[in-house]
């Protein structure tokens, strides 16, 4: 009983990261897929979600569970609303020109990040999880004397981490249902296929875009709310998250939701596993280089079909 249990723990940590990443990257992928906009400020919406979760939980009483539920509802709504306004005030006026929107979202990144620094400050602040039971992990091994069962043996996870994984699975399933079954989702997909055609059929493309940008940001904020009881909220936390979601979206194939989720699991798990056993910086360097090379040699992503 030496290597195996640690691997299991690493995979569990990886699954938590993968869940949060899948949520956040789905937002990025949705925005790119429908609007063809690379939203560099996406990491800041994640950060805002975490910071707002802190704000909501510190101002609402009634115990950590109630406060957390309030945060999980309010933070995505507020962040999504803010993003929709940013879309209407800035991106719409740039006619969604790909390069100019990237420059503008870089500007938005600094505005959100620095405004948070001015108001929330430079400290990292924790949020109390709604529940947090220690769950000792069992380990089963085929030894000399047949099957042996170790419990407890020292390593454990928490109920909240398991909840994050479950919540992400439910939310992503809901997003998929929303995109494939609901009328709003159909409209979004129609706009994705052909904006001009959608206009011709009377779809209010401008409002769809604002909604998509809002929903994308809301997903990032929700990921931020989920992660903040595990990691603290900090005004610079968006940078790494953005880099990882970029990696996920590119590996998964730009704009493909299913590919994005597969990639999130892959990257999240391997990042979790690698950073338990190796230096996280080295892992990040290699992952970043690998992703750049994927874009150069396989721009449709590792899981995408033929290039778009």
């Amino acid at each position: 009983m030496d290597f195996g249990p640690y691997l299991m723990l690493a995979m569990l940590e990886g699954a938590v990261l993968a869940s949060v990443l899948a949520l956040m990257a789905s937002g990025l992928s949705l925005v790119f897929g429908v609007m063809r906009v690379v939203n560099v400020a996406h990491g800041e919406f994640y950060m805002l979600g975490a910071v707002m979760a802190w704000a909501v939980t510190s101002f609402i009483g009634g115990g950590p569970a109630l406060a957390f539920i309030a945060a999980a509802i309010l933070a995505p709504l507020l962040v999504g609303g803010l993003a929709a306004v940013a879309d209407m005030v800035i991106l719409k006026r740039l006619n969604y020109d790909p390069e100019r929107t990237i420059v503008a979202t870089i500007g938005l990144l600094y505005i959100l990040q620095q405004a948070t620094l001015m108001t929330y400050g430079a400290d990292a602040r924790p949020v109390v999880p709604p529940f947090n039971h220690r769950i000792a992990l069992p380990w089963v091994e085929w030894g000399e004397g047949g099957l042996s069962f170790y419990f407890p043996w020292g390593l454990s996870t928490t109920s909240y981490k398991l909840f994050v994984i479950g919540a992400a699975v439910v939310l992503i399933a809901a997003l998929r249902l929303f995109m494939t079954r609901s009328k709003a989702g159909l409209i979004m997909r129609a706009t994705q296929l052909d904006g001009e055609m959608a206009t011709a059929f009377g779809i209010p493309v401008e409002r769809v875009y604002a909604a998509v940008f809002g929903v994308g940001a809301g997903l990032a904020a929700l990921a931020g709310v989920l992660i903040v009881p595990i990691q603290q909220a900090h005004y610079l936390m968006g940078g790494d998250a953005l880099l990882l979601s970029f990696i996920v979206v590119i590996i998964g194939g730009l704009g493909s939701l299913a590919g994005t989720i597969v990639a999130a699991v892959l990257i999240g798990m391997s990042d979790g596993i690698i950073s338990v056993f190796f230096s996280p910086t080295l892992a990040k360097i290699l992952a970043t280089l690998a992703v750049a090379l994927v874009l150069v040699f396989r721009p449709q992503g590792l899981f995408g079909g033929k290039g778009r």
Binding site: I90, R93, L94, R100, V103, A104, I106, G107, L108, L109, Y110, I111, L112, Q113, Q114, A115, L117, M118, A122
Partner: peptide, 21 residues
């Protein structure tokens, strides 16, 4: 005036792309 001096850079980027391309 403030530690958040990159705020100016952010605002400048947005205003430039909008009004002074």
């Amino acid at each position: 005036v403030t530690d958040a001096y990159m705020l100016i850079a952010g605002v400048a980027l947005v205003l430039l792309t909008l009004f002074l391309p």
